[in-house]
């Protein structure tokens, strides 16, 4: 495919293909920033892909005590799933197992959505009859007695159906080290963009997948076209001097947020340059027939 080059980094004239998702945002607070982060990290663990995890989740940003409902340090997390029912199940399970259990934690809705998910309304039963409902103006929350006091949890959380999952950048480098440095720079830039997450470890995925497999019942398998060790035996997408490929997958509450994140990622990769970072930037798609959201790299240049 034809490409253009900016500051020595080749950018393919292709696009990332993404899908509509259901999403919610939650604010987790605690007595200290450390424990707010601990609860957030735990509840967004094992949430890299809807294929195997049920949802994709991650930390959107840290909030200071002036930005949270209860005046304590907090973290805003985003959760994405393919259906409202699955998202509801994941929210209930993850908050119940990972936030409710974390010392001093509280959980609030972080999104004014067109619809809502049950949050405290489902978790209240843990109170075994001692839970207390409180409503002040439009706000409704539950107080659930726990061993360090009370778990405060808003009754419901906003849900958006305008979320997008699967925005991506494929980063190709001449060595494993420079490729990783490039991916780290892009992930760091994307982390600063509001309303998006990069759900894979550190925001980076090294095992990009293609749809299907030679094996029956396996929905996804390794993206052999981007595996450098298979360059000679499959129809490869890599040039002769490419040694490693990493991918960044982006989920956002809106399509604009995903585009902003991809733009920030590309800008960081270009800034780093081909010697210290990526030699080429590409994106994954399915020919444009599956996902309604297309992010053309040439429209996202710095």
């Amino acid at each position: 495919m034809p490409a253009l080059t900016i500051k020595g980094v080749q950018i393919d004239d292709t696009f990332a293909e993404a899908f509509g998702m259901r999403a919610t945002a939650l604010i987790i607070t605690a007595d200290t920033a450390r424990w707010a982060r601990q609860a957030a990290v735990t509840m967004t663990g094992m949430a890299t892909s809807v294929i195997g995890c049920g949802c994709e989740a991650g930390i959107d940003r840290e909030l200071n005590s002036r930005q949270t409902p209860d005046g304590r340090p907090g973290i805003r997390v985003l959760l994405f799933a393919v259906s409202t029912a699955e998202l509801q199940k994941q929210v209930q399970t993850r908050v119940g197992q990972c936030v409710l259990t974390s010392p001093g934690s509280a959980c609030y809705s972080g999104l004014e959505g067109e619809e809502s998910l049950r949050l405290g309304d489902g978790l209240r039963y843990f109170g075994d009859g001692w839970q207390i409902s409180k409503r002040v103006g439009p706000k409704h929350f539950w107080r659930i007695p726990v061993m360090d006091g009370e778990f405060v949890c808003e009754a419901s959380a906003g849900l958006t159906k305008k979320a997008v999952g699967g925005g991506n950048l494929i980063i190709i480098g001449r060595t494993a080290q420079t490729t990783r440095a490039a991916a780290e720079a892009a992930a760091a830039a994307i982390a600063k963009v509001p309303d998006v997450i990069a759900p894979f470890p550190g925001g980076i995925v090294r095992s990009g997948s293609k749809v299907g497999s030679k094996y029956k019942g396996v929905p996804a398998s390794t993206n052999d076209a981007y595996c450098p060790t298979l360059r000679g035996v499959v129809k490869t997408a890599l040039e002769a001097d490419a040694a490693a490929v990493l991918e960044i997958v982006i989920d956002g509450l809106t399509s604009d947020a995903v585009a902003s994140a991809m733009r920030a990622g590309i800008a960081a990769l270009v800034k780093l340059g081909p010697k210290r970072g990526a030699m080429r930037i590409s994106a994954g798609n399915y020919g444009g027939k599956l996902g309604p959201h297309h992010y053309h790299l040439r429209r996202l240049l710095p």
Binding site: I132, K134, E150, V152
Partner: peptide, 14 residues
Amino acid sequence: VHQLLANRYMAAMI
């Protein structure tokens, strides 16, 4: 005697 988070949250709302 307790200094409950719920009361602090209520305080912010009222």
